[in-house]
Simulated assay, not measured.
Amino acid sequence: MPKRAINLEKSLRDLETLVTKMESGDLSLEESLKLFERGIQLTRQSQQALNDAEQKVEILINDHMQTFPLNPDTQFDKVEPDAVAKSDD
């Protein structure tokens, strides 16, 4: 089964809607269980989408570092203050 791209924002909105309905207390046990099951599916899909995005970011960073490696002698945190001449006045 091929992966389908999911809309993370829509999944989160749907999950929020499910939680609101379940918190209302107006659902039967059967309805609550169906919504709970759907909520678990949305949570898993959302987590997978986040994991996939994290992997893509790591790949991009690694590719960039191979193309443009940092010079190990470069020191970014050291700033030399300007010499201030003391006056004998």
Rank of each mutant, 00 (worst) to 15 (best):
K3E: 09
R44N: 13
L33R: 15
K56C: 05
D63L: 06
S24F: 07
Q75A: 07
K78A: 07
E54P: 01
K34L: 13
S32V: 03
K56T: 12
E30S: 10
Q66W: 04
N7C: 06
Q55R: 14
D89Y: 15
R4H: 09
L33V: 12
A5T: 15
G39E: 07
R4V: 08
L60Q: 04
T43V: 08
H64M: 11
V79P: 03
E58P: 00
L18T: 02
R4I: 11
K56W: 08
V57C: 00
L15W: 07
D14P: 02
I40V: 15
E37R: 14
D73M: 12
L29F: 05
D73K: 13
A85T: 15
D26K: 15
A83P: 05
L33M: 13
L27E: 10
G25W: 05
R44I: 04
Q47A: 12
E23F: 00
L27V: 03
D89G: 15
D73H: 14
L50W: 01
D73Q: 15
G25Q: 04
A5S: 12
A53Y: 13
D63P: 04
E31Y: 02
K34M: 08
Q66A: 11
L50N: 06
A49G: 04
S46I: 01
G25F: 03
T17I: 10
G25N: 02
E23L: 02
T17A: 15
D52A: 03
M22L: 07
I40L: 13
R13A: 11
D77R: 10
R13K: 08
E9Y: 07
A85G: 09
L8M: 10
M65L: 13
T74K: 14
M22V: 01
K10Q: 10
Q75F: 07
K21C: 00
L27P: 14
D63S: 06
T74E: 14
L18R: 00
T74G: 06
D52V: 02
L35P: 02
I61C: 03
N71F: 05
L35N: 08
K21W: 05
F68Y: 14
D52H: 00
T74M: 14
L70P: 02
V84D: 05
D89P: 11
I6Q: 03
P2A: 05
P72W: 01
L60F: 00
L33Q: 15
D73A: 14
E30M: 06
L12M: 08
N7F: 05
G25K: 02
K21M: 09
L35W: 03
